[in-house]
C-alpha cells in the first residue's frame, strides 16, 4: 500500500490523484482493510454468495419495442453536442 497504489485506483475510478492527500487515503484504506479482515474469522468455503436477498430468478421481458426518447431531450441534458450526437474529446484509435 503506497502512493503508487493510490494513483492506480484513482486512475481506475477516473479521479484526480492528489499527492498531498494520498497519505490520508492510505490510512482510510488501511482502516477499511482491518475492518474487512474481520470477515476472515468466518469460513465461507461452503457458503454460496448472496447478491439479491430474495434470490429471485428469471425476470425477463418480452421482445417488444416501445418508444424511445425524443433526441432533443437527450441533447438538452448533454453538456456538449453536435450534429445530433454527443460530443467528446477526440478519441485516437
Amino acid at each position: 500500500m503506497d502512493k503508487g497504489y493510490i494513483e492506480y485506483i484513482c486512475s481506475l475510478a477516473k479521479l484526480e490523484y492528489d499527492e498531498e492527500n494520498s497519505d490520508r487515503i492510505i490510512e482510510k484504506i488501511k482502516a477499511f482493510d482491518v475492518y474487512a479482515e474481520k470477515l476472515a474469522d468466518i469460513d465461507t468455503n461452503d457458503i454460496k454468495p448472496l447478491v439479491n436477498v430474495n434470490e429471485t430468478i428469471n425476470v425477463m421481458r418480452e421482445d417488444a419495442v416501445m418508444p424511445s426518447l425524443e433526441r432533443n431531450i437527450i441533447l438538452e441534458n448533454a453538456p456538449e453536442k453536435l450534429y445530433g450526437c454527443i460530443k467528446v474529446s477526440k478519441i485516437i484509435e
Binding site: A36, I47, K48
Partner: peptide, 13 residues
C-alpha cells in the same frame, strides 16, 4: 476474494 466475494457470502449468514 477477501473483500467483495467474502462479503456477499457472509451476507447469506
Amino acid at each position: 476474494k477477501t473483500h467483495y466475494d467474502k462479503a456477499i457470502r457472509v451476507r447469506r449468514l
